[in-house]
Every structure is written in structure tokens, then in C-alpha cells.
């Protein structure tokens, strides 16, 4: 366990996102406040259209709120320019998707080292970091395989390695088990859980209650607002 920190890795403060305007305006999120600390995995559940994906997109800096603030490692994503936001995405935020989104023409090792190389890390150092990340996920031996030479579970492990490589601490996972069978899906959740136990902060969007239950907290969204929570908020445990 890392030393307790008072600052959340991700903080959404009174975030509202409205798509469209006037009579056609859709309130995707309504004044949602939400925090995730290092060491914590939070699951977000809710029916289609409840705002789950919008929340994740805003947390990842891929979209901007209509009002409110989104802070990652203390930096307000709504207050910085697009260049700095893009840099923060490369250095602080890792995404894990349902369909893995690995680049088919690159090996597992190259897929994992790519975000570092794009950020200017020399190839040799980036490859070394990638191989460490793959090792931590138990798949060091797959470094030279291409995505189509791996099973779904193996590809998702590579995607998690890519999400955490280079000491990124915020992992945003969008239905990461949706394409996997129940045993492999559980393996992936255990890995995400372990990455959070090792100091990352995770946000998991899922519609599978068994998988959500690996989280410390489960947040229920409905019509763009948080209606309830199950589990202990980290802030309460710390105070």
C-alpha cells in the first residue's frame, strides 16, 4: 500500500454535460461529483443512457464538461489547452476498452511501448518499460506476438499493460470484460484490482454485477446523476 495521499488521482466536481441545446438538450450528466484515490477501484453502473460512458470520456479528457471541473493528479482538464490535455492523456491516463484496441501491425511489446515513444521516451527505455509492464501482468513471454496470435484474455492483458506503462496512475476501463468468457473476465478484473492495490486509481464501467463487485465502491448512475453507492468511500476510510 502506498502512503496515504490527501489528493484524489481523479476528481469530478459538480460536472454537468449537456449535449445539444434548447428543447433537444440532453443532460448526459447532472452535477456529478466523484473522486478516486490511489489504491482504489471504483465501479460505475447504470442503465443505458445513465451517463456512464460520458463520465469516463470526461475523466479521460476526451470531452469537456458543460460546467464543473475535472481534475487529474490535481490538474484541471477544463482549464488547460488541448496540447497539455493530450500530454496528460499520454502520461497520466490509461484506457482499457471492451475490444482491446491493440494495433494489429505491432507486437504486444510495441503496442505497450508506443505511448511512451509518442511521448519522446527513447526506444530502448520504452521497450524496457514495456517489458516490465508485460512481466507484471504475467505475459512477458508474449512480447513478440501480434494481436491476432493471442487469445482475447491475452490481448486484454496487453491492453492493461499499455494502460499502466510509464507509471500512469489513472486507469479508465470501459466494459473491459464484455468480449471475454466468465473465467477470463474474472482474471482481468483480478488484474485490474491488483494494479489498483499496487497504487493505481481505477474507474470501471461495467454492466456485470459480479465484476463491479471487485471494486471498493460501486456508484449507481441514473439519468445522469449519482443515486446511490455501495461500499466504503476511500475518503471516509482515510479520515
Amino acid at each position: 500500500m502506498n502512503a496515504p495521499e490527501t489528493r484524489p488521482v481523479l476528481e469530478l466536481a459538480q460536472v454537468t454535460r449537456i449535449h445539444g441545446a434548447g428543447g433537444l438538450a440532453v443532460h448526459a450528466l447532472r452535477e456529478v461529483s466523484f473522486e478516486t484515490y490511489a489504491g482504489e477501484l471504483v465501479a460505475v453502473m447504470g442503465p443505458s443512457g445513465s451517463g456512464k460512458s460520458t463520465l469516463l470520456t470526461l475523466a479521460g479528457g476526451l470531452d469537456q464538461p458543460t460546467s464543473g471541473r475535472v481534475l487529474v493528479e490535481g490538474t484541471d482538464l477544463t482549464a488547460v489547452g488541448s496540447a497539455e490535455r493530450a500530454k496528460l492523456r499520454r502520461t497520466s491516463i490509461g484506457y482499457v476498452f471492451q475490444d482491446f484496441n491493440l494495433i494489429p501491425a505491432l507486437t504486444a511489446g510495441e503496442n505497450v511501448s508506443l505511448p511512451l515513444e509518442l511521448d519522446g521516451v527513447p526506444t530502448r527505455a520504452a521497450r524496457a518499460a514495456a517489458s516490465t509492464a508485460l512481466g507484471e501482468l504475467g505475459i512477458a513471454d508474449l512480447a513478440d506476438r501480434f494481436p491476432d496470435e493471442m487469445s482475447g484474455g491475452q490481448q486484454q492483458r496487453v491492453a492493461i499493460a499499455r494502460a499502466v506503462v510509464g507509471d500512469r496512475r489513472l486507469i479508465l476501463a470501459d466494459e473491459p470484460t464484455g468480449a471475454l468468457d466468465s473465467v477470463t473476465g474474472e482474471d482481468i478484473l483480478r488484474l485490474l484490482r491488483a494494479r489498483c492495490d499496487a497504487g493505481a486509481a481505477g474507474v470501471l464501467v461495467t454492466h456485470e454485477p459480479r465484476h463491479a463487485a471487485w471494486a471498493d465502491r460501486v456508484v449507481f448512475l441514473r439519468d445522469g446523476a449519482v443515486v446511490d453507492e455501495a461500499g466504503e468511500p476511500m475518503a471516509a476510510v482515510r479520515s
Binding site: 483480478r190 484490482r193 463491479a212 463487485a213 460501486v218 449507481f220 443515486v227 446511490d228 455501495a230 461500499g231
Partner: peptide, 20 residues
């Protein structure tokens, strides 16, 4: 329904803690 959903989710979190 929501009260039950939260309570059942808490139970499910408990089973996963035991599984770990």
C-alpha cells in the same frame, strides 16, 4: 429496488473479498 440493489451489491463485494 435501489436499496436492495445496493445491499445485494455489498454482499457481492463481500463474496469477492473472500475469493481473494
Amino acid at each position: 429496488i435501489q436499496r436492495q440493489r445496493s445491499a445485494t451489491m455489498s454482499a457481492l463485494q463481500g463474496y469477492n473479498r473472500l475469493k481473494r
